[in-house]
Design a protein around this nucleic acid. Structure first.
Lengths: 145, 145
DNA sequence: CTTGACTCGGTACTATGGTACAGGGTGTAG
DNA sequence: CTACACCCTGTACCATAGTACCGAGTCAAG
C-alpha cells in the first residue's frame, strides 16, 4: 500500500487543517517527500510521524520555534553529537522545571478541593498559594519567554 | 510602608510591563484596589499576589482565559461551593494530564541523551519516539485545544 | 468530456498576548 | 514656576499560530 499521501489525506490522518500543513511548510517544519508532476504534494510515513510529533509537542506547550529545535536534534545527530546532547539537556531542564511547577499546582488544586469539601463555614477556600510567590522572596519561574 | 503601589511600582515589583497591567485590567484579570482623585491606579498586596499568580500560571502554559477561571475559583468560593469544586476538579484533571505528557517527554529526552552518549556509531540518536504516536495506534494526547 | 472533489499559490483575516505611541494631566524637587 | 518623571485614555502596531478565501489547475468517475 502506497506511501504517498496527498496533503488532504495527511491532514485528515493526523487531524489538522490543510492550511496548517502548508503553514508548517512555510516555516520549514514539514517538507513534502515529493511532488507529483502536477505540483501536488506527496507525503510518506516519515512526514506523517513528523507532523504528529509537531502537534504532540505543541500540546505540551512547546512553540513552533522550539519544536524546530527539537526536530533538529533528530536530523543533525550525525554531525555534532555534543551539540545535540547539549540542546537536549537544556530542553530537558526546561521541561523538568515546568513539570515541577505544574505538580505544585496539582497539589494546590487538590488541597483546594479537599478543604472546600470540609469547610462548611464561609471562611472561604484556600487560594492557590503555590503560585503566588512574588519576586521579593524567590522566584522559581525564570522562563520569561 | 504603604500598601498603595502605583502601576509603575507594581509593574516593576512583579517584573511586567505597565501596558501589560492595563491590558490585564481590560481583560478583567486585575483591577486596581483604588484610584487617586487624579485617576492614578493604586494596588495593594492582594493585587500584587494576583499579578504574580497570573504570570506564574502563564509560565505553566495556562491561557489568560484559563487563568481567569483559576482565579474565579478563589473569588466565587462563598457562593456556589459545588460549582467551585467541580471546576477545580476539571482543572485538576487537565493539569494532571499535562504533567503526564510532559513526564513522557522528560523520559524521551533523557533516553535520547543517554543513548547518544553511548552510541559511537553513526547509527544516529533515537528519535523522540514518545511523541511520534499517530492516531492509528493510541494517542495519549487528546488535548486538542 | 463534463462534473465534482481535490489541490495549487497567494493574500487576507482571526485570536491571543502583548507593546508602543500620541497627546494630555499629575506630582514633586529645586 | 519650571522640569522631569510618572500617569491617564485611546489607538495602533507586533509576533505567533493558525484559518479562510480566491481564481485557476488536476484528477477520477461516469
Amino acid at each position: 500500500m502506497g506511501s504517498g499521501l496527498t496533503i488532504g489525506q495527511l491532514a485528515k490522518r493526523v487531524g489538522v487543517n490543510i492550511q496548517t500543513v502548508r503553514y508548517y511548510e512555510r516555516l520549514k517544519l514539514l517538507t513534502p517527500a515529493a511532488r507529483k508532476p502536477s505540483g501536488y504534494r506527496l507525503y510518506g510515513a516519515t512526514e506523517r510521524q513528523r507532523l504528529s510529533f509537531i502537534k504532540n509537542a505543541q500540546a505540551l506547550g512547546f512553540t513552533l520555534r522550539e519544536i524546530r529545535e527539537l526536530l533538529s536534534l533528530q536530523v543533525g545527530s550525525i554531525a555534532r553529537r555534543g551539540d545535540v546532547q547539549r540542546r537536549a539537556a537544556i530542553k530537558l531542564a526546561q521541561v523538568e522545571a515546568k513539570v515541577k511547577n505544574m505538580q505544585a499546582l496539582t497539589r494546590a488544586l487538590r488541597s483546594l478541593i479537599r478543604t472546600c469539601r470540609h469547610s462548611q463555614s464561609s471562611a472561604g477556600c484556600p487560594i492557590l498559594k503555590s503560585l503566588e510567590e512574588d519576586g521579593r522572596t524567590k522566584n522559581p519561574f525564570k522562563e520569561r519567554r
